[in-house]
């Protein structure tokens, strides 16, 4: 329990240590999170997602700058992929954000996906909670460079930002499902490049087609040139506006309920699986099941039912 108490007292090292335990799936981390949970739910969580190379890290870096000017404390979670071959990872998003590393109002943590698909690591949800409990006003989560379907971030973020750039070929066609549906805010970065007007136009048409008359929020499109810091203030103001609309319209409550439900089921699923797997592998039952399947003596459906029946008669 020691870590959680230290974190609530502002101990950075303890926070960092707990994030490590979460990432390494230590059982002790769960106990610490139990203590932290009542102190969470205050931070505004912003997801930043988009294809590789669209400038997510640079954008995050500039957003931190604007937020700090506004005296907001900021947490940043930057997710990079784990190599599927070696299991190692090079986490390089920080390179663009290093000027904030000595700012005590900013805490940046790099996470590797560790085989988890969906654009963020399995640990991301819980690391968000630690930063939330640390008292960060805003938490920016930069996903891995995603293509079409890696939209896990919506289950973690209050505001999801989708970053696009001109000149990725048949832009909108390539991304119309999935990632385009999750954006609360769209950013056209590198907007000095050719094709920005056309991209904006296509995007607008796309969004209008998807818009329902009952929607209380129309996703805005911001043009930025992150390298030069252009358009960032407007973008940060847009996040604030989204936050206000969420609160005014009672959407925030609805979102919170949805998320709580999702989160509980995920935790239930994974702890159930963990316990079950331990038991099945300990008494050799898993091996027997696999053998029976390979020899076609029994089918997996029946055997799964049998096991479930044993636990939940």
């Amino acid at each position: 329990m020691a870590l959680a108490e230290k974190i609530l007292k502002g101990d950075i090292k303890a926070a960092s240590r707990l994030m490590r335990d979460i990432d390494d799936e230590m059982d002790s981390a769960t106990d610490e999170l139990k203590v932290l949970y009542p102190q969470t739910g205050r931070a505004h969580v912003v997801g930043v997602t988009g294809s590789p190379g669209v400038g997510k890290s640079t954008l995050v870096d500039k957003m931190v700058e604007v937020l700090r000017r506004d005296s907001k404390t900021v947490g940043v979670i930057a997710v990079d992929p784990t190599s599927p071959f070696s299991g190692g990872a090079i986490l390089g998003d920080r390179v663009r954000m290093q000027r904030h590393s000595t700012d005590e109002g900013v805490f940046i943590r790099s996470l590797a996906t560790r085989g988890h698909l969906g654009g963020i690591s399995r640990s991301t949800h819980d690391v968000i909670k630690v930063m939330d409990a640390m008292g960060k006003d805003i938490i920016l989560v930069e996903t891995v460079g995603v293509g079409q379907d890696e939209v896990d971030i919506v289950n973690a973020a209050d505001t999801s930002i989708v970053v696009l750039v001109p000149g990725l070929g048949d832009d909108i066609q390539a991304i119309k499902a999935g990632i385009l549906e999750i954006g609360d805010i769209f950013v056209i970065n590198k907007c000095d490049q050719e094709g920005a007007d056309r991209l904006e136009q296509e995007l607008r048409i796309m969004l209008e087609m998807g818009q329902k008359s009952t929607d209380r929020w129309t996703p805005p499109i911001y043009r930025t040139e992150a390298i030069k810091g252009e358009g960032i203030e407007e973008l940060v103001a847009g996040i604030q506006r989204h936050r206000e609309v969420l609160q005014q319209e009672g959407l925030h409550q609805k979102q919170a309920r949805q998320r709580a439900r999702y989160e509980f089921l995920e935790i239930l699923k994974s702890s159930l699986m963990k316990k079950l797997l331990q038991r099945l592998s300990k008494n050799g039952e898993l091996d027997r099941i696999v053998d029976a399947m390979v020899k076609r003596e029994k089918d997996p459906y029946t055997m799964a039912e049998e096991i479930i029946h044993k636990i939940l008669p």
């Binding site: 784990t82 190599s83 070696s86 299991g87 190692g88 990872a89 090079i90 986490l91 390089g92 920080r94 390179v95 290093q98 590393s101 790099s110 590797a112």
Partner: peptide
């Protein structure tokens, strides 16, 4: 180090 299954944070 990455190939040796470590997670490497590189800061430039």
């Amino acid at each position: 180090l990455r190939d040796a299954v470590m997670e490497v944070i590189y800061t430039g």
